[in-house]
Design a protein around this nucleic acid. Structure first.
Lengths: 139, 139
DNA sequence: CATTCTTGCGTAACGGTATAACGTGTGAGA
DNA sequence: TCTCACACGTTATACCGTTACGCAAGAATG
């Protein structure tokens, strides 16, 4: 086995690079930057940022990964059927780095209403809370 | 006049660099990146990114400027008493670049409720809609 | 089979975004 | 006078992301 010239789509049709990146994100406890992922995957042969960015683009597109705009970093999606959830909010702890994924229909509804009132057609929505998580408030 | 060695806080206690940056943002039709601002202010003697970033930090802190996380850019605040408005949403047109500033108490309330439910203490909240504005939908 | 299209890959070079680590100057207040 | 806080200026560097190439493999088609 391990014919390293052939694609090995171990996860639902992902290419080699895509599954390498996906694995790093899935195993990580928090968000990772593209360059951190690159460094972790050098041992697997990745050399250039573009290899990571292309994989990330695809993973974000199919909903397996989220981009955190306020962090310039990426997290694996933790929700079961994430593709279906349109709007997701993130609670990002600035102290421990923990990220909670929150899917609340009320937010989605309100944002849709606001957009409609302004006759604005949203393509992508970003909702990120930066602050202190429950466990870090003791400090 | 024009003693260029002294601070000239022409706007409510702003320093020279801060008011230079503020003026660029106030005159711009859309968001500006820090480096765009720097280029525009070279004629006024600014040379290094840090001069702009420090001014931006302060202006954001006092609520005269907003940072658009999904764009890595900055806009002047268009609301009258912006400091008081905790949560502001932005509708950013990906076609014409127009940015609408939306202050809706419902969103603010929902986000607060969500945070409280998760025992999360928010410090800063980002809500950005990317899409097509009313005028650009014709295309 | 030959052709074309599409998709992913690999590399090099580059451009855009942001901060670290110095040191200087000035005004407020002990 | 002596700090202390704050803004400033400079250099260098780190971090984030894309452009522009060309190659390879599989699917679709004639």
């Amino acid at each position: 086995m391990s014919d390293h010239h052939h694609h090995q789509p171990d996860l639902a049709g992902l290419t080699r690079n895509q599954s390498l990146v996906m694995n790093q994100l899935a195993c990580a406890v928090g968000p990772l930057s593209a360059y951190t992922i690159l460094d972790q995957l050098r041992v697997h042969g990745l050399r250039a940022p573009l290899q990571v960015y292309r994989a990330l683009d695809k993973l974000v597109e199919i909903g397996m990964v989220h981009r955190l705009e306020s962090l310039n970093a990426f997290v694996a999606c933790r929700q079961p059927g994430c593709e279906t959830n349109e709007t997701i909010a993130f609670a990002i702890c600035d102290i421990c780095g923990h990220v909670a994924e929150i899917s609340d229909p009320k937010i989605a509804r309100d944002l849709s209403a606001i957009a409609e009132a302004a006759q604005f057609v949203p393509r992508k929505t970003t909702v990120e809370l930066r602050g202190a998580c429950r466990l870090c408030q003791a400090a």
